[in-house]
Amino acid sequence: MASTATRMRAPQRPNPALTRRTINGLLFVAPWLIGLCVFTLYPVLASFYYSFTEYDIISPPTFTGLDNYQTLLTSDPLFWQAVSNTLFYAMLAIPLNLLIGLGVALLLNTKVRGLAFFRTVFFLPSIVPDIAAAMLWSWLLNPQFGLVNALLKLLQLPTVGWLSDPAWAKPSLVLIGLWGFGGSMVILLAALQDVPQHLYESADIDGANSWHKTWHVTLPMITPTIFLTWYSALSLHFNTLPPPLSSQAGRAGRQVRH
């Protein structure tokens, strides 16, 4: 330590404390850094390169310029369908999910009894494995014998083909997605419970009612969290559409592909 302190006075020479910190820092992040280069950066660059080639994985890639992009944008019938489906989810399904998550989180934040119980009830669907959820929902939404249609019949309402009907496949997936709103709810609830109490007290002094408090105190305070959950739902969603569900959707599959 003493030698470090004396040497620090000479700024021209390399600073050994700084060097040591740099080495230590790099050592700690080294596993991630190696993984970044091998499993992320290289694949991204490779994908970018392959996008300009004709490549079937078995024989070596041949360079074709912008051909793939041209096909994608002009003659691939699935591309624009996929873009519109993606926008549909990003702009409708995910905000709907967040809205319900926020609504329930606000309800739970009114100091209700049995908070832990309700939180569990709403959170559980979001941790159900995709494959199990696919099994469950293909049974619930079964056109002939499913519970959802049975209840519709009981209420004298028209029944729907759900996953087997191209027109209803997308709404069905939105419905199934809604069931898992609990993931964002838990995070939003944690943010709500973190809003400083004194803000509400000063709002009380100013004569604010509970609507004012929600609109002018709560929402501005948790806006960053709303964006974070929206963003993570978005990136999660782009990465995993439960494949069993799309194949369950059968001939509707084309309509829901991303």
Partner: peptide, 25 residues
């Protein structure tokens, strides 16, 4: 350490890469 914050930004950036982009390579 120098470069730490830059690398952290890279880390956050990788969160936005969809799996389908890196899947095949």
């Amino acid at each position: 350490w120098p470069g730490r914050n830059a690398l952290f930004v890279v880390l956050l950036g990788t969160l936005m890469i969809p799996y389908s982009v890196i899947q095949i390579p």
